[in-house]
């Protein structure tokens, strides 16, 4: 466990010292800020009828979130393993007395923590909304908490996908593109429940639809099904990542 802490500190340091991370944070805040401003614009025109939860849906569950996730998650994760393999530092790392699983888990946790840090500055949005004292339904605290929970769960799985693609290639670009593709497919598949289907397909599609999950979370609905969906996928992807790093020994 000590080596996990040591590795985590090093990974966090590496992330926060890289210009990529700060660029990603700036980009992310610009996108989410645009999303928030558009929400303010909508509310100021008053045309939209909205209840507490729906405001949060617009805030966290809009297309802007997906746009940001599609860019940010691959950027955070692409360097994790691929870069070490390319530069050869992976050899130095993996000949220290640490398990592959510890290394993967530390890298994943660091990326996830950075993802959480991305969201911290967005807490200013609900705060602003409260300060502006809108007429009508106030912000719903429960829905807000659930919305952030959903955002973190989806991010957790997306980052696991990114770490996974980073483990199967030496090229950061390939890793990023792979993660982008996985998240993209997942995002687009999120629209399947909104297209007519047979019952089985529709139910499965709904179980796996990130778009509807996030909207559900953002209106305060916490369901064990999406939670399990993301946790299982995260665990599976991380496990596969460990296997991939182990398999490198045989290659």
């Amino acid at each position: 466990m000590r080596s996990f802490g040591v590795l985590l500190r090093r990974e966090l340091g590496a992330i926060f010292l890289s210009p990529m991370a700060w660029t990603a944070l700036t980009f992310f805040l610009a996108v989410m800020g645009t999303s928030f401003w558009m929400l303010l614009d909508l509310l100021s025109r008053g045309a939209e009828r909205t209840e507490g939860g729906e405001v949060i849906g617009q805030l966290l569950g809009s297309i802007f979130f997906w746009l940001a996730l599609l860019i940010v998650a691959p950027v955070i994760t692409m360097r994790t393993i691929a870069e070490e393999r390319r530069s050869g530092t992976f050899e130095m790392l993996m000949t220290a007395p640490v398990r592959d699983g510890t290394v993967v888990l530390a890298k994943y946790t660091a990326a996830l923590l950075f993802y959480a840090v991305l969201w911290l500055p967005t807490l200013i949005y609900p705060l602003t909304l409260r300060l502006l004292r809108p007429f009508g339904a106030p912000l719903d605290g429960g829905a807000l908490a659930a919305g952030y929970l959903g955002v973190m769960l989806i991010g957790a799985a997306a980052i696991a996908a990114g770490v996974f693609t980073s483990s199967i290639t030496r090229s950061q670009v390939t890793a990023a593109l792979g993660a982008f593709a996985i998240i993209c497919v997942f995002f687009l598949a999120g629209f399947l429940p909104y297209i007519p289907h047979g019952e089985t397909v529709a139910r499965t599609a709904h179980y796996a639809s990130g778009v509807s999950h996030l909207l559900d979370f953002a209106r305060g609905v916490v369901d064990t099904r999406p939670i399990a969906f993301y946790l299982i996928n995260t665990a599976w992807l991380l496990w596969a990542t460990v296997r991939m790093t182990e398999a490198r020994r045989w290659k």
Binding site: E51, G52, G53, E54, A137, D140, G141, G142, A143, A145, A146, R203, Y207, R219, G220, V221, V222, D223, T224, R225, A228, F229, I232
Partner: peptide, 20 residues
């Protein structure tokens, strides 16, 4: 696990409004 999770679940509404 996905199969089991899809069948055994709890659904809670944290929102104060509970519109749906």
């Amino acid at each position: 696990l996905h199969y089991l999770a899809a069948r055994h679940y709890v659904r809670r509404d944290w929102s104060g409004v509970g519109f749906y």
